Simulated scan of single mutants.
Amino acid sequence: MKDYYQAINWNKLEDQIDKATWEKLTEQFWLDTRIPLSNDLADWRKFAPEHKKVVERVFGGLTLLDTVQSEDGMDSLMKDIRTQHERAVLNNIQFMESVHAKSYSSIFSTLNTPKEIEEIFEWTHTNKYLQYKAQKIDGIYRTGTPLEKKVASVFLETFLFYSGFYTPLYWLGHNKLANVAEIIKLILRDESVHGTYIGYKFQLGFRELNQEEQDKLSAWIYDLLYDLYANEEKYTHYLYDEVGWADKVLTFLRYNANKALMNLGLDPLFPDTADDVDPVVMNGISTTTSNHDFFSQVGNGYLLGDVEAMSDEDYNIK
């Protein structure tokens, strides 16, 4: 039992980044219920069966990964907080990961029949590549060191989600499923902050290690990335070969794998840059959101069309 409980004091900060991140995340707050997904039904009805299947499966996969993050990931990170304020930030992140997972169900309930929804979720439970990465990340959450857990979280937020994000961003660039894509852009805006914040906390701990410990952990990180990427290649070919997008998706994945390493303060692994990614998809990554509710002015932009995710520079460690 604790000798006493310590009230959290936001007027006395150990780390200013905690407060800055809290404010950014609360400014960005949104809910899927404010986005008119039914406006995308006309587009959806014209989709070829193979394109519908890709959309359904990538969103099923994203639901599974967001569930891992909300149910196990943030709980795991909370065991190793450096400050009380960090716990508050992680509480916010955990809630928003649940919002993300629910948002995909809102998409399904709009576009799919109950029978189709059951089939999508059954697929997520049985696809070996999807289950592999979920179990790999969750295993680190359960048995890894505090720094290893942060690496797993950053790889999930900044790398593994992106094989799924490619699809709605592609269709947005072709003026299809615009409201579905708005949800993805809101999720991307959140994930950008989540990845950079947790990467920043990793860097604080990494700097406290001696050179031998740093070298050993760095080798483990790159080995983990190689392993995850090898599985992600198979997952991507499984999802996208039928529509001919696999190679472009893999370029997008490698670019985001490098971003994940940069969030951790490490050197990029792959030669791919933003210039190599399909420009239609890169344009969709813009964190500005549209506003559909002209009366209350709290549509999916939530008065925050000019709010952007925190940049890497916001988390620079001097």
Rank of each mutant, 00 (worst) to 15 (best):
His85Gly: 13
Pro146Val: 04
Asp138His: 11
Leu250Ile: 09
Glu27Asn: 10
Leu13Gln: 11
Ala181Asn: 01
Gln16Pro: 13
Asn127Gln: 07
Ser109Ala: 13
Ala257Glu: 00
Lys133Asn: 06
Tyr104Pro: 01
Ser70Asn: 02
Asp40Pro: 13
Pro36Val: 07
Val277Thr: 02
Glu97Thr: 04
Val154Leu: 05
Asp75Thr: 11
Lys53Pro: 06
Pro279His: 09
Glu213Thr: 10
Ser106Met: 09
Arg142Lys: 15
Lys12Ser: 15
Ser153Tyr: 15
Ser70Phe: 01
Thr83Pro: 05
Tyr104Glu: 01
Asn231Met: 08
Asn263Cys: 15
Phe29Glu: 12
Thr113Arg: 11
Leu228Phe: 04
Glu148Thr: 01
Tyr104Ile: 12
Phe206Lys: 02
Phe159Thr: 06
Val280Pro: 03
Glu308Ile: 14
Lys2Asn: 14
Lys19Val: 04
Met1Glu: 09
Phe270Pro: 02
Tyr197Lys: 08
Lys259Arg: 14
Thr158Pro: 03
Asp267Trp: 00
Asn210Pro: 03
Glu208Arg: 08
Trp22Ile: 07
Ala219Ile: 04
Trp220Thr: 07
Leu147Pro: 00
Ala257Cys: 10
Thr251Gly: 04
Ile17Glu: 13
Lys318Asp: 10
Asn231Glu: 05
Asn92Thr: 13
Glu23Thr: 11
Met78Ser: 09
Gly73Cys: 09
Trp245Asn: 00
Gln84Asp: 15
Asp80Ala: 08
Pro271Leu: 06
His51Arg: 09
Phe59Cys: 08
Asp227Ala: 03
Asp3Gln: 14
Pro146Tyr: 05
Gln214Lys: 15
Tyr226Val: 06
Ala152Ser: 09
Ala274Ser: 15
Ser153Asp: 03
Gln135Phe: 05
Ala181Tyr: 01
Ile8Thr: 12
Leu147Gln: 07
Val58Gly: 02
Asn210Asp: 15
Lys216Gln: 14
Leu304Tyr: 08
Thr113Asn: 12
Asp293His: 13
Thr196Asn: 13
Tyr240Lys: 03
Asp241Ile: 02
Val193Thr: 15
Gly195His: 06
Glu191Leu: 01
